[in-house]
Amino acid sequence: MALYNDTVMDHFMNPHNVGEIENPSGKGIYGSPVCGDMMQVTIDVDENDVITDAKFKTFGCGSAIASSSMATDMIIGMTVEEALDVSNKKIVEELGGLPAVKIHCSVLAEHAIKNAIYDYAQKSGKTYAALEGYNPTEDSEEDDHHDIPAEE
């Protein structure tokens, strides 16, 4: 039995939406190489608040890269409100499941997208209910799955 299902492997080996949008509407980064995964998302949003394009760059394992690819696929064509509703659970569902120990990798994509939208909201002066009280850096530092000591 393979580590990942065919959908995950396909998104890992041939990821969609790789790269970086120049002068994006919003840019978000989440994670760090010390934690073992890090993702950057850039998005373009049109005047109707629809995400017209999304690109990612990810440092991470197979499921982190596959989640990044799937998540960016999912949000392209969505309104910002809809994209804010894309949870890691939905990403995992679309991927047809991840090994239990790898579920956290999909959180990376959810957070990076949220951070990109937060950046867009800041720049455009828009407000979204889902972003109320949201601090883009807080979770990054205190993520419970990233409790690896910096020194031993």
């Binding site: 190489p33 010390v34 073992g36 995964d37 394992c61 982190a64 120990v101 799955h145 690896i148 000591p149």
Partner: peptide
């Protein structure tokens, strides 16, 4: 890599020889 260990624990050997965390 921690992500392949099944437990997400970083290699205790690489940590003990001070391989940079990055």
């Amino acid at each position: 890599s921690a992500c392949s260990s099944g437990s997400l624990d970083i290699s205790h050997v690489l940590a003990a020889i001070n391989v940079p965390m990055t």
